[in-house]
Structures are given as structure tokens and as C-alpha cells.
Design a protein around this nucleic acid. Structure first.
Length: 139
DNA sequence: GCCAACGTTGGC
DNA sequence: GCCAACGTTGGC
């Protein structure tokens, strides 16, 4: 199983919005960046990801799961863009802020720190476990 | 709300 | 194939 991180602006589509979608989850559409799209193409059903609030909040707030593999992004006819579906699994007991991730030192290689503009990015198993621990939440 | 960083587009 | 112009993301 692989691990990922999904960014979203809470004012546009936040953690609570994903929770409201329930078990069916939500199509992670609107991604128009090749790197982010390529990451989604690698995803398998059952892969886990962090849900991060960008622009405001600036913290990882919960764990999500991939519920459907790549298919055409329904918001466009352009065949270049496809995406996966994700659902909320559980919230972090304690949100993990970007500030604390930067201050930690163990996460300096994460795209979250090094490539701030990448909205869908891979996370290593080591990073996954360490961040879940910071969030005081089961991986 | 600003703007730096980065990605994409298109004229040449 | 270069690079200027433009558009978008996201931290501050």
C-alpha cells in the first residue's frame, strides 16, 4: 500500500465536506498539474492519504482512502486529465501543522516542505507513521 | 490581499 | 527549442 497527501482549501472543499460525502467519497477532480495527475495515476484502491488544509489552516487534519482508481475528470472533456475518488477515514485527534512539520526536521524532504505548489504528492511509510504519531492517531 | 515560486503556453 | 508572457498555487 502506498501513502499520499491531498491538499485542499478548506473554504472551497474542506475536511468536513469530505466527511459529509460519506462512504461513497468524492471525485478528486479539478487537478490540472501533470505531476499531481501522475501521482493519482499511481494510486490503488485502499491506498491511504493525508488531508491537508492549504491557504488557511495549514495543517493535516485527517486520513483519507482511495475508493476508485483513475478515471476521466468529469469536470472536463480533455482526456489528459483524470483523477481518483477518495473518502474520509478518520480525523486526526491533534491536527499536525505545517509549522510543526517544518520545525521537526524529519520531514524536510517532503514535497509539502520542498515543493509547496504540488497539490497531490507521495508520502513515505516512515513519514506516514511519524506524522500519524504526531497526530496521536492510528495509521 | 500580496507576491514569490513554479508551471504552461505560444510566438519566433 | 528558447524564452517572454501569462496563469495558478499557497505561504505569509
Amino acid at each position: 500500500m502506498a501513502y499520499w497527501l491531498f491538499k485542499s482549501e478548506p473554504e472551497v472543499f474542506g475536511w468536513d465536506d469530505l466527511v459529509a460525502k460519506g462512504e461513497k467519497g468524492e471525485e478528486w477532480d479539478g487537478i490540472r498539474n501533470y505531476q499531481a495527475r501522475n501521482n493519482m495515476r499511481e494510486m490503488k484502491v485502499g491506498d491511504r492519504g493525508f488531508f491537508y488544509h492549504s491557504r488557511s489552516g495549514l495543517e493535516i487534519v485527517g486520513i483519507v482512502e482511495v475508493t476508485a482508481e483513475r478515471s476521466q475528470d468529469s469536470t472536463t472533456d480533455d482526456p489528459r486529465w483524470d483523477c481518483v475518488d477518495i473518502k474520509a477515514v478518520r480525523p486526526f485527534k491533534v491536527p499536525v501543522t505545517l509549522e510543526s512539520i517544518k520545525a521537526d526536521g524529519r520531514f524536510d524532504d517532503m514535497a509539502l516542505v520542498k515543493n509547496t505548489r504540488l497539490s497531490v504528492q507521495p508520502v513515505t511509510e516512515t513519514e506516514w507513521k511519524a506524522i500519524c504519531a504526531l497526530g496521536q492517531t492510528d495509521p
